[in-house]
């Protein structure tokens, strides 16, 4: 499966006296970094797409189909959070297996896929460990392994690597970029660091004050001089 397109048309959402309004068109297979100052609505954008927040109006189209009425589990989406991606009381094999069956009913083929996923993220042999017995980077690798077995065409990353050191973060970005290149997913990644966007993302969208300011190829976006908000954000 290759990635799917994502389109938000006039998606509105309000919380207390704060509101957002998104219009955005992401082509299949893009790796989009989502940047912008805090309060710009980066996490809200991902929560809306994943179904953890309900827009008050507008449409969210994944692969041309409006998913607004669907609960999170029925959307073709996997989201990685900053933390709590794993159940701390279950070993990571069980955590990954939950991505296939919430009742943990696994076929032999399922088990093979899980083994392959652990292989792919470099955690072979650690399947029976609990999250507490792993490093922060290993925990996020396990979460990525679950994203692999879930095999959803749209991957949302809500700063899952923000707590990692620079070298480890780059490793994780490279891993995600590889998985993306292998043709499996369209990716949306929230980040606080423009370096992350430059390293991994084909495209970058800049959000400010609850709306999309610009979506362009990463290099082109960072080269733009006409956006006052972007200049203020980057501080350059």
């Amino acid at each position: 499966m290759s990635g799917v397109g994502l389109k938000l048309s006039d998606v509105r959402f309000a919380y207390a006296d704060w509101q957002v309004q998104f219009d955005m068109d992401v082509a299949p297979g893009w790796f989009v970094a989502v940047i912008g100052p805090s309060g710009a609505g980066k996490s809200t954008l991902l929560n809306l797409v994943a179904g953890f927040e309900q827009p008050s109006s507008g449409a969210i189209l994944i692969d041309g189909e409006d998913v607004c009425a669907l609960p999170p589990a029925r959307r073709p989406v996997t989201m990685l959070f900053q933390d709590h991606n794993l159940f701390a009381h279950l070993d990571i094999h069980t955590n990954v297996a939950l991505g296939i069956s919430p009742a943990l009913k696994l076929t032999a083929a399922d088990r093979d896929r899980i083994t392959a996923a652990f292989d792919r993220v470099g955690l072979s042999g650690l399947e029976r460990r609990r999250p507490g017995e792993l490093s922060g980077g290993q925990r996020q690798r396990a979460a990525i392994a679950r994203a692999l077995v879930r095999d959803k065409p749209l991957l949302l990353l809500d700063e899952p690597f923000a707590a990692l050191g620079p070298a480890l973060k780059n490793d994780m970005l490279d891993l995600v970029a590889e998985i993306h290149r292998e043709g499996h997913m369209t990716v949306l990644m929230v980040s606080h660091d423009p370096q992350d966007a430059r390293r991994a993302a084909s495209h970058t969208v800049f959000l400010d004050e609850g709306g999309v300011v610009a979506l362009d190829q990463t290099k082109a976006l960072f080269a733009r001089k006409d956006l006052a908000g972007l200049k203020a954000y980057l501080g350059a």
Binding site: A50, F52, T78, F81, F87, P102
Partner: peptide, 11 residues
Amino acid sequence: DHGRLCASLDL
């Protein structure tokens, strides 16, 4: 901690 994860995994 787990609400969103459970919702996305249909748990």
